[in-house]
């Protein structure tokens, strides 16, 4: 009997403590980041979809179309074509297509590239009503558009 009453009182006390905890939180500031109006900064290593990188000095795309990335990609979502420009020993990229609908953002392609020609973008709010928009993203075009901006 005594034990039961004691447990009952302890129980009531625990309920009151719970109420006190939530009330304390009630008067604190919300922690939500109000997304479309406030935007958090992305960390430097954020893995968005891949983009082609330009060489600082020459201003040309670094990619030498060696197809290493195409081979390592687990999802088969890269297609690279390259050609030797007249008078040059190395190849240059002519076409770089990414199927972003399949990409798992694993980053293996960026890691494997021997000349560091790939990087992650920080674009995350990608949306479209047409699948085709992301099924075959032309990264060469994207690099040009990026320069124009």
């Amino acid at each position: 009997m005594v034990a039961a009453i004691k447990e009952f009182c302890l129980g009531l006390h625990s309920l009151a403590t719970g109420l006190a905890v939530t009330l304390e939180q009630f008067f604190r500031r919300p922690v939500t980041v109000h997304y479309p109006w406030e935007v958090l900064e992305l960390p430097a290593r954020y893995r968005g979809h891949i983009v082609l990188v330009r060489d600082e000095q020459t201003g040309r795309l670094r990619c030498i179309a060696c197809k290493m990335c195409e081979r390592i990609c687990p999802s088969d979502c890269i297609v690279v074509e390259g050609a030797k420009l007249p008078g040059e020993s190395r190849k240059s990229v002519t076409e770089f297509k990414l199927d972003f609908t399949k990409c798992s953002l694993c980053g293996l392609c960026v890691e494997v590239c021997p000349v560091d020609a790939l990087a992650f973008s920080k674009r995350y709010n990608l949306a479209s009503t047409r699948k085709a928009d992301y099924e075959s993203m032309d990264l060469c075009e994207l690099a040009k558009a990026g320069d124009a901006k």
């Binding site: 430097a44 290593r45 954020y46 980053g107």
Partner: peptide, 20 residues
């Protein structure tokens, strides 16, 4: 996320160590 670049599917470890 700051270390691995992603928030859920990290893919951070590599054979022999870490990617960064």
């Amino acid at each position: 996320e700051a270390v691995t670049g992603s928030r859920l599917t990290y893919c951070y470890y590599r054979f022999g160590g870490l990617c960064n």
